[in-house]
Design a binder for these strands. Sequence first.
DNA 1: ACCTGAACACCGTTCAAGT
DNA 2: ACCTGAACACCGTTCAAGT
Lengths: 212, 212
Amino acid sequence: LETSVSTSSARPYHHGDLRRALIDSSLEIIATAGARALTLREAARRAGVSHTAPYRHFSRKEALLAAVAEEGFRDLTAAMLERMDKAADDPLRRYQESGIGYVLFAVGHPAHFRVMFGSDLADLAAYPDLQEAGWASYRVLTDAIEACQRAGLVRAVAVQDLALTSWSLVHGLAMLLVDRQLEPWAAEAENLARLVTATLHRGVLATNAETP
Amino acid sequence: LETSVSTSSARPYHHGDLRRALIDSSLEIIATAGARALTLREAARRAGVSHTAPYRHFSRKEALLAAVAEEGFRDLTAAMLERMDKAADDPLRRYQESGIGYVLFAVGHPAHFRVMFGSDLADLAAYPDLQEAGWASYRVLTDAIEACQRAGLVRAVAVQDLALTSWSLVHGLAMLLVDRQLEPWAAEAENLARLVTATLHRGVLATNAETP
DNA sequence: ACCTGAACACCGTTCAAGT
DNA sequence: ACCTGAACACCGTTCAAGT
C-alpha cells in the first residue's frame, strides 16, 4: 500500500545517478564558494543524500577531486579548440590561440583550474581517466605546433621541447593570475596571454647578439 | 618557594619567541609531511604550547601561512642570487641562471613553494611584508634582464613585458613539476629549466618566417 | 601580556545495520 | 546494490579564565 507511492514519484535513489549528481554539486560549490569549500559532506548535502553515501561511488575525497579534475581537462580541451577555430587555418595563429584559450579557461574557472592541478593526488597514475584527459589537452598543443612546423613557420626542432616550453609559459601565466599574483592586471588576461606568447615566438635575444 | 624553580630553568614562555617557533614548526611539518599536514594545532603541539596560544601571534591560520610564505620568498631570492653568482658577469647566463634557480628552489622545496602561491589569501595586500618579499624576488629577474639590455644582448623592449614572460615560463615549469604533471622527468628539472629558458631566448619562429 | 581548557561547529572515514 | 546513523579522531576559532 505504501510502497506503491514511493515507486511512482519519490525514488529512494534520488538522481538515478548519484555519481553524476555529486560531481555537479562539486562544480557548483567550487564555482560559488571556491575549492576550499568543496567538502564530501557538503556535496552529499546538495545531492540530498547522507554524508556517507558518496563512499558508494568514490573511495575517498581524492577520488571525487579526480573526477572533478577530469571534467575540467575535458572542458579545457574544448575551450582551446573553440578558441583556435577563430583563427581559421592560419597555423601560427592557431598555435597562439591555443595558449590564449588555456589562460582564459583558467581565469574563467579559477577554482576548477586549481583542483585540476593543485589537488595533490598521491599518484596520478591511480586515475587513468584523469591522466588521459590531461594528455588530450596537451595533444591539442603539440598538434598545433606540428602544423606550424609542416608549414615551415616554426623551427624544426623536437616538438616536445617546444610544447613543454609553450605549456610552461601559458601554465605559469594562468597560475599567477589564478593565484592573484598579478592582481592589477587581472582584467587584462587575454592581452597578457597574447603578449607572452608573442614574446616566446619572437624570442628575447637582440637580433645581432650571438655569443662572442 | 616553588616560583624560584620556574624562573631559573623552565620559563612559562617557552622559546622566548613563540612566533618564530611556530614558523619553524610549520616549515618542519611542511618539509616532512606536506602542506596539507600543516595545521595550527600541530604547529602549536610541536612548539610545546596549547592549541590556542598561536592566536596571540597570528590572528588566524592564514596569517601563519603568510609568514611561512614570506620566509619562502626570501629563501627563493637567496637561491636565485646564489645560482646567478655561478655565472660570474655574463649577463645572459645570469638571466638564465635566475630562472634555473627559481625552478630548482621549487622542486627542492615543493610544499613550501605551494604555500607561497597556493595558499589562497583573501587579499594579498593584507600582508605587506609578504608582498614586499615577493616583489624582491621579482626584482632579481628584472635586474638581470636590464643588465642584458644594457649590454645589447636582449631586445630593447619594455622590461616588464620580458619579465612577465620569463616569470610565467619558469613559474609554469616549476608548478608543473611540483604538481607532478611531469613525473617522468622529475629528476631532470635542471635540464628542463635550461631547455625552456634557452627556447625563450632564441624564440620559436623559423628563421625566415615573417608574416607573408 | 601571554597562555590555558572547555566548548562549538565543522571535517574525512569507518562500521554495523537497514532495505 | 545502495543508503543510513552513530561514532572516532581530527580541524579552526571563540571565550571565559588564570598568572
